[in-house]
Design a protein around this nucleic acid. Structure first.
Lengths: 147, 147
DNA sequence: CGTGTAAGGAATTCTGACACG
DNA sequence: CGTGTAAGGAATTCTGACACG
């Protein structure tokens, strides 16, 4: 039986610390290196310059942005329009992340089954909301506070 | 107002497609390149060989594993023991991922507020469970099915 | 066992220029 | 505006060996 503070878990899932080279971003997103360099020059995305060398590195977050821009361009938008749309997406992901950090209070793993304690269930604050996976299916249930 | 099928969103957040070079893995995890090459040689982690070239590339998932192994070693475990512990963690993350994919049915963003529809609330199957962020705080509520 | 280092070759990325449009 | 390409130099990664233990 393993249990974890979810806060710890998310700190272990790096978002900011992950940086990758232009080739890897190009491969992951399907956007060419020329495009990436151009977008950066125009200020649509940013890269971190490696201390000693002069190679670019891109954060995971930037990779997601590149991906968003490409998606909108595939939908027929111009580059400028696609950039604007992608801007809003950042808020989206940040919001999701805040949900995980705030509401995944405690995670417990028992064999193949797993439980996520999401803290106080607001419609009935005497209970905690728990998501439970049993035999591959996720179900919600309410439990009394443990302490 | 933006709304999204969560399924789409998660497909856009690549896990498998992201591969990165050994230097980037080393930087992100704090594990040296020598260590990474050795661990790979022993079969503890795996890398994908680039088609034409002969450079290694590591998936995001492998990066997480490297990070886990290091963490356990920092706790005092031997390499072999740390690898065994890290093994179990994979199931952990896969489980979390399945929760997102199965239960984040629909996501809606209104200005700065965001709603996540998590589908049927099992204790009362006539309702859907919704997580809502208002003014920076997440709350749960129940709503009747929309259709 | 587990990691580091020096060594020379191979693969990747760099910039600035030029092309097309 | 937005992207591609050829060019030479710079930075990164490769393998196999050897060291320490």
């Amino acid at each position: 039986m393993i249990h974890e503070d979810a806060a710890k878990l998310f700190k272990k899932i790096p978002m900011e610390q992950i940086v990758l080279g232009i080739g890897d971003v190009a491969k992951a997103t399907g956007v060419s290196q020329s495009q990436i360099r151009y977008w950066e020059r125009k200020g649509y995305i940013e890269s971190q310059v490696v201390e000693d060398g002069k190679n670019r590195k891109f954060s995971y977050k930037t990779l997601l942005k590149v991906q968003q821009i490409k998606m909108h361009m595939d939908d027929g938008y111009t580059l400028v329009a696609a950039v604007k749309l992608a801007q809003r997406r950042g808020a989206f992901l940040d919001a999701l992340r805040s949900f995980f950090e705030e509401r995944f209070v405690h995670i417990e793993l028992v064999d193949d089954d797993i439980q996520i304690n999401m803290g106080v269930f607001d419609p009935d604050p005497t209970k905690d909301l728990v998501a439970e996976r049993i035999a591959g299916k996720w179900e919600f249930k309410l439990v009394a506070h443990e302490k």
